[in-house]
Computed example of a mutant assay.
Amino acid sequence: MAIRGVPSAREMTVEDFKLWLKQFDVDGDGRISRGELREALRRRGGWFTTIKADRAVRRADKDNNGFVDNAEVENLIAFAQKDLGMKIST
């Protein structure tokens, strides 16, 4: 069942989530931009992906550089679980 526009096809581990996210790092800089996150959400079948990606980066990006890096990915996981309804287990 889809929750808030993001289908939860299966439960992911944190490592699976990081690997899934890494495939959208098109410039290979090790960080996820709003555009890259928007594409990840879009490919997962999400709706309103621009708004959700903007909100996710704002909440996860603690140093306000506009990107989610490895140190901030836990914040992104928390957002994905709470606001996108994704099931991510440890």
Results as ranks from 00 to 15, higher is better:
Gly28Cys: 09
Glu74Thr: 09
Gly66Tyr: 04
Leu84Trp: 12
Arg58Asn: 06
Arg59Pro: 02
Asp63Cys: 04
Ala2Asp: 10
Asn75Lys: 12
Lys87Thr: 08
Asp29Asn: 14
Lys52Cys: 13
Lys52Pro: 01
Phe67Cys: 09
Lys22Gln: 13
Arg43Tyr: 08
Thr90Ile: 12
Arg31Ala: 12
Asp29Cys: 02
Glu11Ala: 14
Ser33Pro: 00
Arg31Cys: 12
Leu19Val: 07
Gly85Asp: 05
Arg43Val: 01
Met86His: 02
Gly28Trp: 06
Ala80Ile: 14
Lys87Asn: 06
Gly66Met: 07
Ala80Met: 15
Trp20Glu: 03
Met86Asp: 04
Leu21Cys: 10
Ala9Asn: 03
Met1Lys: 00
Ser8Tyr: 10
Gly85Cys: 06
Ala40His: 06
Ala71Val: 09
Leu21Thr: 04
Arg59Trp: 13
Val73Pro: 02
Trp47Cys: 04
Trp47Lys: 08
Ile32Asp: 02
Leu76Pro: 03
Lys18Asp: 08
Val68Glu: 03
Glu72Pro: 01
Leu37Thr: 01
Arg34Glu: 02
Met86Phe: 09
Thr50Lys: 05
Ile3Val: 11
Arg55Gly: 00
Arg10Met: 10
Thr50Arg: 05
Glu36Leu: 04
Arg38Ala: 03
Leu19Gly: 06
Asp16Ala: 08
Asn75Cys: 14
Val68Trp: 02
Asp63Glu: 11
Ala40Glu: 03
Arg4Tyr: 11
Gly66Phe: 05
Ala60Asp: 02
Phe17Gly: 01
Leu76Phe: 14
Arg44Ala: 10
Asn75Leu: 14
Thr49His: 04
Thr49Trp: 02
Val73Leu: 15
Ile88Phe: 10
Gly35Ala: 09
Pro7Asn: 00
Ser89Cys: 04
